[in-house]
């Protein structure tokens, strides 16, 4: 398997002077293409920071990230956004669905961003919702969906156009453990079907069993990659 993502010597310091916080310290990591990687660690250990850096949303203080041979840490803000648009999908703890849009329209919006429009977007959003097992609620708005249902819609959205990497920050934290587990299993299954790499940040040790690999972060440093 090829390396989908390669991080080298990442440091991230927030703020400056006395108020500065060192959130990442010399983090290096390789993620294999198609792998489901789970990142665990205590609160404040820098998990979200690492995810944001790997996803090209946050610029590290030093260090580099390569995704499919592109050094995304060297891209301008605009180019990084364009790279995310073409290669990444996201699942959030708070779902971050668009309240004014139905489930189907939420997925269509992502497709639209990626350049799929009109009838093609309608068909594709239907297929995505169907594979996420939520097509029967396609016309519902997020406010009328349960947490688990909302997260299924977000997964359908994140998988629009089969991105190379799906990033998920605490995707189960707002769900009860049963639906949380179901949602993660779904994410894994759909990602495997499409050959997407998945990077999940979680507190929840019960979802570690869906991972191909689990890595631990503490105080901004990676602990030795633990075997499953």
């Amino acid at each position: 398997m090829t390396t989908a993502m390669r991080a080298r010597g990442l440091h991230k310091v927030y703020g400056s002077g006395n108020a500065s916080v060192c959130a990442l310290q010399d983090v290096s990591l390789d993620v294999t293409g198609g792998e489901v990687l789970v990142l665990m660690g205590p609160s404040g250990s820098g998990k979200t920071t690492l995810l944001s850096v790997l996803a090209g949303i946050l610029t590290p203080t030093t260090g580099s990230v390569h995704v499919n041979d592109t050094e995304i840490t060297a891209l301008s803000r605009r180019d990084a956004a364009d790279f995310r648009r073409r290669h990444f999908g996201f699942v959030f703890q708070g779902f971050n669905l668009f309240g004014a849009l139905s489930a189907r329209e939420n997925v269509e919006l992502a497709l639209h961003l990626k350049g799929v429009r009109g009838a093609a977007a309608r068909d594709e959003s239907h297929r995505l919702l169907q594979s996420a097992g939520i097509d029967h609620r396609a016309g519902s708005h997020p406010r009328d969906l349960s947490g688990g249902e909302k997260q299924r819609v977000s997964i359908a959205r994140a998988l629009a156009c089969a991105p190379s990497v799906v990033f998920a920050d605490e995707p189960t934290a707002s769900l009860d453990s049963e639906s949380g587990h179901a949602v993660i299993a779904l994410l894994r299954a759909l990602a495997k079907e499409r050959g997407c790499t998945v990077f999940i940040v979680t507190h929840d040790s019960r979802i570690a069993d869906v991972a191909d690999r689990v890595v631990y972060l503490s105080d901004g440093s990676l602990a030795e990659p633990a075997a499953r």
């Binding site: 996803a55 605009r78 956004a81 990444f88 996201f90 959030f92 992502a110 961003l113």
Partner: peptide, 15 residues
């Protein structure tokens, strides 16, 4: 938050 989400998903400022 929705605009931030679109930005994370890669939407340009112009979009």
């Amino acid at each position: 938050r929705e605009y931030g989400t679109m930005k994370a998903m890669g939407a340009s400022d112009w979009t």
